[in-house]
Design a protein around this nucleic acid. Structure first.
Length: 477
RNA sequence: CGGGGUGUAGCGCAGUUGGCAGCGCACCGCGUUUGGGACGCGGGGGUCGGCGGUUCAAGUCCGCCCACCCCGACCA
């Protein structure tokens, strides 16, 4: 239950986040360090995220499958950069059934290797391509520092793994998924994101290059909210994923991988949440509308409840919850559902029964300002309209916040200043040394080179050498 | 793994020179309440993180260990 006020965001952002996650009953700490229990309400949100993504995957020809949790250690070692990237954070099983294993098994940190192994068995001909498989799974990465949803030892995600005949097709797939993620983030979660290319130092271990969608959180830090990797032929060569082309020539495939994780729940929390608690975008909210009946006596109760049921029935197409708890007051319920981020609350009391009205309160506009009186006979249409408005206003608000916190530095000193409380958008020569210097001086890293560039050229903000593209520098989660 | 902090009821905490383990919230019962976090009365709930030591007596003093949180290095 949400009995007290949250620590305000301005006072201590991470404290606000931790309290919100627990009080909104999204997740709780597990008895294992760094692990979380996703509670039913948090999981329902994740399920809605899954549904929105899965529908998009299916619509673009992908199919789901499931690969093993355990991966032979030797598989990881087949791709040099991959094993170097992941070895520090592997959980390794050395005993099974009381016996020391011949070969240690890695608990998957990601599945490129074992899927690559299977693809080499399955793919023989150009007629077998492309292979477009996704899996919804849990993975384990032994992180030093953990935070609920944002970074835990075990997390849930989807990982897509595709194999193609040509480099061009693989790149098209990588970009198609990046677009798909962008569409999901913007249109389902109302989280404005910047799609772009990761720098060499920030790319996935083993990839040719990586793309990401980057979102700005309420404290102006960046959160990588989804990634799409063009793996080139690196894994195809390591796992001998080969096919015969039309000319009977043996060719290595071109592969991709891409993922969105439960971290995205953190993105939603930190993009929309306020000091009252969570604010969920209507399209993903497990409960879109909560109805709070108001009554003083048994007579009023029996007067009000039939109307509550009528309204609920009229809203059959929506995810509606009637809060009929008798042990708490309406005021308590308001705060309670505000903590949980339900986008729209309907209050129905004796006055409404008499007047044929319903009081609607928008979660995104606190207090009286967000309340409007709706006629009962127009409830479905009005609610539908309100939810759309809330969805749009969340996106607009988040976009305005982000844009007002992105600045173009005029020199290096200015950049150092900007990244303390915002993103710096600047020319960069794409040399890792300049990236490293910024990180050293400010803790900010390059987030991505946005695909949408206005063109032209300039001088690297760090070293002054010629630069062809601009990049975002920001502190990140 | 380095630095800091915290472990006492479900949660948040108090517990003085060592002397019957407490408070608020939550929970259960009854009654009154209910349009922005209601109130009264009654009640249940504890290996004081663990192990060892000092002492007539340890939540309190000493030692060791463990866990978790925060800040760093690493990361979806």
């Amino acid at each position: 239950m949400s009995e007290d006020k949250l620590t305000p965001r301005a006072e201590n952002y991470s404290e606000w986040y931790n309290q919100l996650v627990q009080r909104a009953e999204l997740a709780d700490y597990a008895p294992v360090r760094g692990c979380m229990v996703v509670r039913p309400y948090g999981w329902a949100l994740w399920e809605n995220i899954q549904q929105a993504l899965d529908g998009r995957f299916k619509a673009t020809g992908h199919v789901n499958a499931s690969f093993p949790l355990f991966i032979p250690m030797s598989f990881l070692e087949k791709e040099k950069e991959h094993v170097e990237g992941f070895s520090p954070e592997l959980a390794v099983v050395t005993i099974g059934g009381g016996q020391t294993l011949e070969e240690p098994l890695v608990v998957r940190p990601t599945s490129e290797t074992i899927i690559g192994h299977m693809y080499s068995k399955w793919i023989k001909s150009y007629r077998d391509l492309p292979v477009l498989i996704n899996q919804w799974a849990n993975v384990v990465r032994w992180e030093m520092r953990t935070r609920l949803f944002l970074r835990t030892l075990e997390f849930f995600w989807q990982e897509g793994h595709t194999a193609h005949a040509t480099a061009q097709e693989a790149e098209e797939e990588t970009r198609r998924i990046l677009d798909l993620y962008t569409d999901f983030a913007v249109n389902e979660a109302a989280v404005p994101v910047v799609p772009g290319l990761k720098s060499k130092t920030e790319k996935f271990a083993g990839a040719l290059h990586s793309y990401s969608i980057e979102a700005m959180m309420g404290d102006t830090k960046a959160l990588q909210s989804g990634t799409s990797h063009n793996l080139g032929q690196n894994f195809a060569k390591a796992f001998e994923i080969q096919y015969l082309d039309q000319n009977n020539q043996l060719q290595h495939c071109w592969t991709t991988s891409w993922g969105v994780s439960t971290r995205f729940v953190g993105a939603i929390i930190m993009t929309h949440g306020d000091d009252q608690g969570l604010i969920l975008p209507p399209r993903l909210a497990p409960i879109q509308i909560v109805i709070v009946p108001i009554f003083r006596s048994d007579e009023e109760f029996s007067l009000v409840m039939p109307v509550v049921e009528q309204v609920k029935a009229a809203l059959a197409g929506f995810r509606v919850k009637v809060d009929d708890r008798s042990e708490v007051t309406p005021g308590f319920k308001y705060h309670d559902w505000e903590m949980r981020g339900v986008p729209l609350r309907l209050e129905i009391g004796p006055k409404d029964v008499q007047n044929g009205t319903v009081m609607a309160a928008r979660r995104d506009i606190p207090g009286k300002a967000g309340k409007t009186l709706i006629q009962q006979d127009q409830i479905a249409a009005q609610v539908s309209e309100l939810l759309k408005t809330i969805q749009a206003s969340l996106l607009q608000r988040a976009t305005e916040f982000r844009d007002s916190n992105i600045h173009e530095p005029k020199d290096y000193a200015d950049l150092q200043n900007i990244v303390q409380n915002g993103w710096a958008y600047a020319w960069w020569c794409e040399d890792a040394a300049c990236e490293a210097k910024v990180k050293e001086d400010t803790k900010a890293t390059t987030r991505c080179i946005p695909l949408d560039q206005e063109g032209g050229s300039g001088r690297c903000i760090v070293c002054g050498q010629p630069a062809a593209r601009k990049v975002y520098f920001a502190r990140a989660y």
